[in-house]
């Protein structure tokens, strides 16, 4: 559900290394868990092969959600290798959501799942979601913590489905609507990654972690939206998605740029405006759309930092978490 995230930070690597999680080992351990889960449950050879192609693509990335889970597990006192299976489960849940997101938005032709039939890709997405739950259930933690972690992962997935549906309907009239939607669609997965790591380490809910993870997810989605605004090849513009950037832009466009509003309201087709990209870029600059969006994104970063500062954990770990947004 639009869950790609750019949280990749050298300091995260260092912090985990100090706790015995060498980055290569972490990625290898998480990959092993993910491959094991896929091999166990996708028995049909074709399904297994296609799912493996999807997983391979995921594993070529930096596994930021798994790293967030492991970081929080270690930061809150968790020890041992059991967290890798939980971290793998988080990544599989998000891979399933990403596949569904791409099937619905039809805006990404570069992925393994976009090159296979949508029927098969859908089955893989459903299967990965279920495997992620199975992996978490089979992880080596106290049963009570597993129960709460699975329940939380399902809750956050359902939250994301609500947000994704709101996004598909594109019935965003205000910034409040938009923020509500991205809290559900995007931030829910960041919250899940951080909270499950914390929960498995401590057995307790930590509202500070939930709150700052949400700020992190919102900030990242705002950044993605502004990036996609000028990328007319991607689905967001083609699908006339209302975002913080477009809502602001539409509020302040000049008389001569009304064609932009006509496009977003569906009165003009993409073919009719395809030659006006430079005009569009000038309108974006003239209205201060980047500046406004940058300010709003920064506000969520600062909220993130403010809440992280309240954490009652070792200052070394706190600094590692703070460094994610610096």
């Amino acid at each position: 559900m639009g869950a790609r995230i750019d949280i990749i930070d050298e300091s995260l690597s260092h912090s985990l290394t100090e706790m015995g999680d060498r980055m290569e080992d972490l990625a290898e351990s998480v990959a092993k868990e993910i491959r094991g889960g896929v091999q166990t449950y996708f028995a049909l050879p074709h399904l297994y092969e296609q799912a493996t192609a999807c997983v391979d693509e995921k594993l070529r990335g930096s596994l930021p959600f798994a790293r967030l889970t492991v970081l929080h597990y270690r930061a809150f006192g968790g020890r041992g290798p059991a967290i890798y299976r939980a971290a793998g489960a988080i990544e599989l849940m998000i891979l399933g959501a990403d596949i569904v997101d791409d099937l619905q938005d039809k805006d990404n032709n570069l992925t393994a799942w976009s090159r296979m039939s949508p029927e098969i890709a859908l089955n893989i997405a459903l299967g990965l979601t279920l495997i992620s739950g199975q992996m978490l259930l089979a992880s080596e933690f106290p049963l009570e913590r597993i129960h709460e972690a699975v329940q939380y992962m399902n809750t956050q997935s359902l939250t994301a489905i609500n947000g994704q549906t709101a996004d598909l309907l594109n019935d965003i009239q205000s910034e409040e609507d938009y923020l509500r939607m991205i809290k559900q669609k995007s931030a829910a997965f960041v919250v899940a990654a951080c909270m499950i790591g914390t929960l498995l380490a401590t057995g307790e809910w930590n509202s500070h972690v939930r709150d700052y993870a949400e700020e992190l997810g919102i900030a990242d989605q705002i950044k993605n939206d502004i990036r996609d605004l000028l990328d007319w090849e991607r689905g967001d513009f083609r699908n006339r998605k209302k975002t913080l950037s477009t809502l602001y832009l539409l509020q302040y466009i000049a008389e001569e740029d009304q064609w932009i509003a006509d496009y977003f309201e569906g009165r003009l087709r993409m073919e009719e405006i395809g030659h006006r990209r430079e005009e569009f870029e000038r309108a974006v600059e003239r209205t201060g759309t980047f500046l406004y969006t940058s300010v709003r994104m920064r506000m969520h970063c600062y909220n993130y930092l403010r809440i992280v500062d309240k954490l009652n954990i070792d200052v070394q770990w706190k600094n590692r978490i703070i460094a994610l947004a610096k």
Binding site: D6, I8, D9, L12, S13, S62, K223, L230, M297
Partner: peptide
């Protein structure tokens, strides 16, 4: 942030994180 207006891909804090990526 001088890149703010002209380059959508560079919005400050997050790109600093991205630039620092070495994983």
């Amino acid at each position: 942030d001088t890149n703010r207006v002209s380059k959508a891909g560079e919005l400050g804090a997050w790109d600093t994180v991205k630039a620092a990526a070495a994983l």
